[in-house]
Design a protein around this nucleic acid. Structure first.
Length: 311
DNA sequence: CTCAGCTCCTGCGGGC
DNA sequence: TGCCCGCAGGAGCTGA
């Protein structure tokens, strides 16, 4: 069928994205969803085989990477910010960062792929399957990362907080050290935009481009506002918005963990709940606001916001 | 110290 | 239809 002369192929964001799912990039909620997906297959199990199919992700893997993993029991699978931390019986912790495109799939004997992973025919090696583990439970854990912005390392569990990737991280947004007063202290005197400040993992850990846009929209704060100039009211709203949006996104990702029928392997459903991210051109969903979501560039990245209700 | 800009990498969508 | 270009992004690095 020939398109009419006025036809313009819709751009992503021309319409509300509810029917246009995009993969959610791995920020804190997606990493937590992946952690919950792999933990049952790893905790208490012994790694009987490990293979680095290429020597580097973002950085070179430790030269004896496979040997230091093999034979260890996985005591616990935790998370700090966007890092998955698997504590091993050797006293070392496996640190995994998904970067932008990192995915983990689990193959077990009775189903092709565990939830929280992506679909791929069982037993086949996919392009960009860079690291694989096998456990004494019969599971294969496969790390796939097309863009190789991800990373893995091994580090003593007792000194995990001293690792270069972890030592400067700010508080966990849903942990006891994060509240409005802590956020206020961290932002004090900052001349940069609140958008840039929230992407800085030293201020608060785990936010990326998506959830910064979402949190600022909920808190009705312009991404262009100077970080050190929010005032008490905005600080209070922002701390609560950060906590709430991440908690809701984790809950939405968690719901997909139980859905074994999904074949596309997307990690969660929270992309359907985005109020600002990727919705430029759509009506602002804030009750009583007649504005529209706009897209602007800040530091070479897109910010999505409503200039009507975000000030 | 702070902050802006650059860089890595590949898949994908837009435009011709 | 096929090719090319630019964008997407976490976070370390560099230089002002």
């Amino acid at each position: 069928m020939k398109a009419p002369p006025s036809y313009r192929r819709p751009r992503w964001g021309d319409n509300p994205p509810a029917d246009r799912p995009r993969p959610t990039l791995p920020e804190l909620p997606e990493v937590e969803t992946v952690r919950r997906g792999v933990a049952p297959h790893l905790e208490g199990r012994v790694i009987v085989d490990a293979e680095a199919r290429r020597p580097d992700l973002r950085w070179p893997l430790p030269g004896d990477f496979a040997a230091r993993l093999t034979g260890n029991r996985v005591e616990r699978v935790g998370r700090r910010s966007k890092y998955i931390l698997a504590d091993l019986s050797s006293g070392e912790t496996l640190i995994v960062h998904l970067g932008m495109s990192g995915r983990i799939r689990v193959e077990t004997g009775d189903r092709p792929s565990a939830p929280g992973s992506f679909h791929h025919p069982r037993g086949q090696t996919a392009r960009h399957d860079h690291v694989t583990f096998a456990t004494d439970g019969g599971a294969r854990i496969i790390y796939n990362d097309a863009r190789r912005f991800g990373a893995m390392d091994l580090w003593p569990t007792a000194r995990i907080g001293e690792h270069a990737l972890l030592r400067h991280l700010g508080p966990e947004p849903n942990g006891p050290e994060f509240d409005a007063r802590a956020l206020e202290r961290a932002l004090a005197g900052r001349a940069t935009s609140i958008k840039a400040a929230l992407l800085d993992q030293r201020i608060v850990a785990g936010l990326g481009n998506i959830y910064v846009s979402e949190a600022l929209h909920r808190a009705r704060i312009s991404p262009r506002r100077r970080a050190g100039n929010l005032g008490r009211g905005r600080i209070d709203r922002l701390a609560e918005a950060i906590r709430a949006v991440l908690a809701e996104a984790i809950a939405a990702g968690g719901s997909s963990l139980r859905d074994h029928r999904r074949a596309d392997g997307e990690m969660g459903y929270f992309q359907h709940a985005f109020r600002a991210y990727g919705r430029h051109g759509a009506a602002c969903p804030t009750p009583g606001c007649s504005g529209a979501i706009r897209r602007i560039a800040q530091g070479g990245r897109s910010s999505f916001y409503c200039s009507g209700c975000q000030r």
